[in-house]
Amino acid sequence: MYDLIIIGGGPAGMTAGIYASRLGLKTLLITKSFGGQIAKKAVAIDNYPGFESISGIELVQKMEKHLKAQKIDIKLGHVLNIKKKASNFLVFTKGKKEYQAKSVILASGADPRPLEVPGEKEFIGKGVSYCSVCDGPMFRNKVVAVIGGGNAGFETAIFLTKLAKKIYILEYADKIKADAINQELVANSGKAEIITKAALKEIKGKKFVESIVYEDKNKKEKILKVQGVFVEVGYEPATSYAKGLVNFNKRDEIKVEFETCQTKTPGLFAAGDLNVGAVKQIVTAAGEGAKAALAAYDYINKS
């Protein structure tokens, strides 16, 4: 029996782990991998205090090292379900493992939002990618499309300008939402073509992606020959396994008390990008991780 189980190994989960173990809680952290979205960041991080500019993977490694220096159990795994049993929690993972704890912090962040167009699922790993830093190097000298004209899309395009021959950026709206600096970097590369009011209809190919079909501003179908499609249309909270124990807003983000990050279930806390909140930042996720761990400590001592 653990005092606390933390689900997720991004900045929220890792911070919670550092705090909880330093408070002397018997803690287990379960995660699919470390770093969450930071690990996949295509450009350097320039807004985390103490680090003027640091790559995502480097910041993750520093956090991971800090976490692993504590007295804490860590398991790589995929949580499928959580149940309340009397005053304790049961956490079930893939591979039929079961863990028990007095309290739980949900910190599993968010997953890339899919496009939901024909061909997307079939070509995952065959040209369709949700992680440009992972798969980008495989598209050297190829023609690719980035779907999504926000900052994430533009940062992906910036990363890809060093590799790909040509990059199309498709944005559904009539205006580009990315910051001016990102737009400038993309424009300066001379490799990108931006298409607004473009609604993606289908991803086509045989063994691998060969083209995409979109509807242009005049409602005409157009085809682009591309070998890669990088999806950057936002994220959706990874919260389905907590159904029943928490309240969601309409975006499936978890509602928590401001002071404690506690959900509607006593002893169940949530921290980071899976929570309700307009900003999704590394520093705010870490902050909520600390808050949740301290509140869990109080909860355990009072119960």
Binding site: S33, F34, G35, V60, C134, G136
Partner: peptide, 14 residues
Amino acid sequence: STSSCPYCVTLKEF
């Protein structure tokens, strides 16, 4: 793998 892929790092650590 590629040097910048988080799941590759996790796999190799494992």
